[in-house]
């Protein structure tokens, strides 16, 4: 479960990215966060991952109060979140396998069980035959799928993705979205930011719209 109550986020330069945000996302829900550039979508996801801290207000993620979380506890919170970042954050000097295995190494998995999980995740995103490839040799869609595999390899209860289909052509976009839907179907809470609601082909999912840092729906 993710719960925001009266959350404000003001950056040191005075820019108010989020104003009085309050919502609750239940376990297993799939939610889209939309809004124009600068609306506060990425800031909202960063608050969930404790990459940023709220200026005021309370945020509960997996029963943990992010606002009061100690810095030393943040890594353990992130291990239960699958995050797909806007800038992808791929390590280009490592193979596809080595990129995906990193979260498991961080959690201290033995090599054999980690390898099994990595191959299962790569299979799920259709990259099993490219585990030894370097990310630079992958197409844009494949690179995004690599990021998704890395996000889900640790079997997180919450999957958040910051504009995962930006810069992808429509066929890849549909492919990626279907992937998120499949994770949602097995009970994972999925939170995706996307620039405009018009891009969404699945009106049955809940949409949170942001406008200049305020929640409008």
């Amino acid at each position: 479960m993710i719960s925001f109550s009266n959350v404000y986020k003001r950056y040191p330069n005075g820019f108010e990215a989020l104003k009085n945000i309050a919502f609750t996302i239940k376990q297993g829900e799939m939610v889209f966060i939309t809004g124009n550039s600068g609306a506060g979508k990425s800031t909202l996801l960063k608050l969930i991952g404790a990459i940023e801290r709220p200026t005021t207000g309370g945020i509960i993620v997996n029963d943990q109060n992010i606002s009061k979380l100690k810095n030393s506890a943040i890594p353990y919170l992130r291990r239960n979140l699958g995050m797909v970042f806007q800038g992808q954050k791929i390590l280009f000097d490592r193979s596809v396998f080595d990129n995906v295995v990193l979260p498991l190494q961080i959690c201290g998995f033995e090599h054999q069980s980690a390898a099994g999980r990595v191959r299962a995740a790569l299979d799920k995103v259709g990259l099993l035959d490219k585990e030894k490839a370097l990310p630079i040799t992958l197409s844009g869609g494949e690179q995004q799928r690599l990021c998704i595999a890395r996000a889900v390899v640790n079997r997180p209860s919450i999957l958040i993705a910051d504009e995962p289909t930006t810069y992808l052509d429509p066929s890849y976009t549909k492919d990626i979205m279907n992937m998120f839907k499949s994770f949602h179907q097995v009970g994972v809470t999925v939170l995706i930011t996307t620039p405009t609601a018009a891009l969404l082909e699945s009106p049955q999912y809940r949409i949170l719209s942001l406008n200049h840092g305020e929640l409008v729906t």
Binding site: P75, L77, R78, F85, K89, L102, P103, I106, R150
Partner: peptide, 16 residues
């Protein structure tokens, strides 16, 4: 730098 940043984002502790 990139590797450190990514590792921190996906849950690596400072010790790791």
């Amino acid at each position: 730098r990139n590797e450190i940043e990514v590792s921190k984002l996906i849950g690596a502790t400072s010790n790791f």
